[in-house]
Computed example of a mutant assay.
Amino acid sequence: MPMPWDFRPLEGARVRLDLLREDDFDALYAIQSDPDVCRYLLYEPRSRGRVQEVLERDAAATRLGEADSFVQPAIRDAAGRLIGTMYFKIASVEDKTAEIGWLLDPRFQGQGYAREAAALLLDLAFGELGLHRVYAELDPRNAASVALCLRLGMRHEAHFREHMWFKGDWADTGIYAILAHEWRG
Results as ranks from 00 to 15, higher is better:
Arg48Asp: 04
Asp68Asn: 14
Ile31Leu: 08
Leu19Gly: 10
Val37Gln: 01
Asp18Leu: 05
Ser33Asp: 03
Tyr29Asn: 03
Leu64Gly: 02
Asp18Gly: 13
Ser47Arg: 02
Asp68Trp: 14
Leu55Gln: 06
Asp18Glu: 12
Asp58Lys: 14
Gly49Asp: 11
Ala30Thr: 07
Leu41Val: 11
Glu56Ala: 15
Leu64Asp: 01
Gly65Tyr: 01
Phe25Tyr: 04
Arg63Ala: 14
Gln52His: 08
Gln52Phe: 11
Tyr29Asp: 00
Leu28Ile: 04
Arg16Ala: 01
Glu11Ala: 13
Pro45Lys: 00
Gly65Cys: 06
Ala67Cys: 07
Ala13Phe: 02
Ala67Asn: 10
Gly49Arg: 10
Asp36Glu: 14
Tyr29Ser: 03
Gly12Arg: 03
Ser33Tyr: 08
Arg50Phe: 09
Phe25Ser: 04
Ala27Gln: 11
Leu17Gly: 03
Arg14Asp: 06
Gly12Lys: 02
Asp18Pro: 06
Asp58Glu: 13
Arg21Met: 04
Gly12Cys: 04
Ala67Gln: 08
Ala30Leu: 08
Ala59Arg: 12
Ala27His: 07
Arg57Ser: 07
Glu66Trp: 14
Val54Thr: 07
Cys38Tyr: 03
Ala60Gln: 07
Cys38Met: 15
Arg63Ser: 13
Asp58Gln: 12
Leu42Gly: 12
Asp26Asn: 09
Arg39Trp: 02
Glu53Asp: 15
Ser47Asn: 06
Ala13Asn: 07
Gln52Cys: 10
Val54Pro: 01
Tyr43Ala: 13
Asp68Leu: 15
Glu11Asn: 09
Arg50Pro: 00
